[in-house]
Nucleic acid binder design. Structure first.
Lengths: 218, 218
DNA sequence: TAGATTGTTAATCGATTAACAATC
DNA sequence: TAGATTGTTAATCGATTAACAATC
């Protein structure tokens, strides 16, 4: 575990992808895999795979490769898939309900325990397994259940205010889908801003660039 | 435009964020801004901003800064926000309908023109402005409307098959939300894999790391 | 002119790839 | 033992930051 402290941001971003591919291999019953085979599947270099996996200790064996089950388990442990962090979701509009229904929180270290919306007409409605609560209930709920993670699916204008309120209620991690760049100045609080719109724009840019390149070739 | 060809991937990924912040400033009526002021807002270095903006020609003026309106327009043009690429969405489940309703395609260079699902019980239902069509209609629709972009909100198992079918129908860009790493071996076709699950896992990892760091301090 | 701030070059830093000795 | 493949060091590449001369 000693090596853990120095895992670089680039490696961390690749970890979930390794975890997914190893999960697939495990499901298929593959017992061992070499960095070369994995590199073919994942379309990254074998060198990078070996470099990455070595950040957290030698899980491979020379002349053999990596044991799929062990490696999968180890990466899962590093990512914290067994943490079960209690998680609340704020904003039960289209996107909020889709996230609640679509994301498998439990296999990713989180447990969705509450959904809130400011719109009283939604109070009591079901979203997946859970009934939507009014945001007035947040304080009481958090005092009782002490959630650690909050998913924000709310309009830009309310994001900072709700985030501040949730920080006061002990939330330590924000998964933010609002169209607002959330940043919080406590170094024990982490924020992941998603910005689907930015992702689409990047695609537009690349589509345009590819189109121009193809046209130039004619 | 000559400098365009060499814009690095890291810069491209930051472009939508610049565009957003400049849009905000424009809305607030700010006329000019220095790299220093913008760096405070965006929490990146002024040096990086100047370096980035210089990839596509000198839009600043020494001793003055940048004209907000001009810079916003220029970045928009580079991203292709005015392209209006015809776009179809496949998979009108929770996530698909939320994306259709929640994302402002038109301000991001895309125009959503059709929604498809394989489930006949959804055919004819409204999703935003559009009525859901059956995937059997894809061929006919694409021949007529010639869409260029496809948003995939379908299960993992169907993704490769649908993608191949869409490539044959002339789709050049994929915005892929399925739990599957799509890669296509034509260099005039671009793919953006979103993977919300990976994003949540990264958050879990960081939450866990921050928690451990805080505990160690006690 | 003096002050401000860019554009741009040089220095630093970090991440990726290549290479190969260690070893299963 | 011979073959395979890792772990790890060194080389390369790219991205970020610092510095400052150019110039508005």
């Amino acid at each position: 575990m000693a090596k853990n402290s120095s895992i670089s941001p680039s490696v961390i971003k690749r970890l979930p992808r390794y975890y997914r591919f190893l999960g697939e291999l495990l499901k298929q019953g593959t017992e061992r895999i070499s960095s070369r085979e994995l590199s073919d599947m994942m379309k990254i270099t074998a060198s990078q795979i070996r470099q990455d996996l070595n950040c957290f200790g030698g899980f491979g064996q020379q002349g053999y490769g990596y044991n799929v089950r062990d490696l999968h388990a180890e990466i899962g442990k590093i990512l914290g898939v067994d943490k079960g962090f209690r998680t609340i979701l704020i904003g039960a509009g289209n996107l909020g309900r889709a996230i609640a229904a679509h994301i498998n929180f439990s296999t990713r270290g989180c447990e969705l325990v509450g959904i809130f919306d400011i719109d009283r007409s939604l109070t009591g409605e079901k979203a997946g397994e859970l009934s939507i609560m009014h945001t007035d209930e947040l304080e009481k709920f958090c005092r009782q259940k002490k959630p650690m993670v909050a998913v924000l699916c709310i309009p830009k204008a309310n994001t900072q205010e709700i985030a501040d309120r949730l920080v006061a209620l002990g939330i330590k991690a924000f998964w933010n889908f609002s169209h607002y760049d959330l940043s919080i100045d406590h170094d024990d609080i982490v924020v992941e801003n998603v910005h689907l719109g930015d992702s689409l724009m990047t695609l537009t840019y690349r589509a345009k660039a590819a189109e121009e390149a193809a046209r130039d070739q004619d």
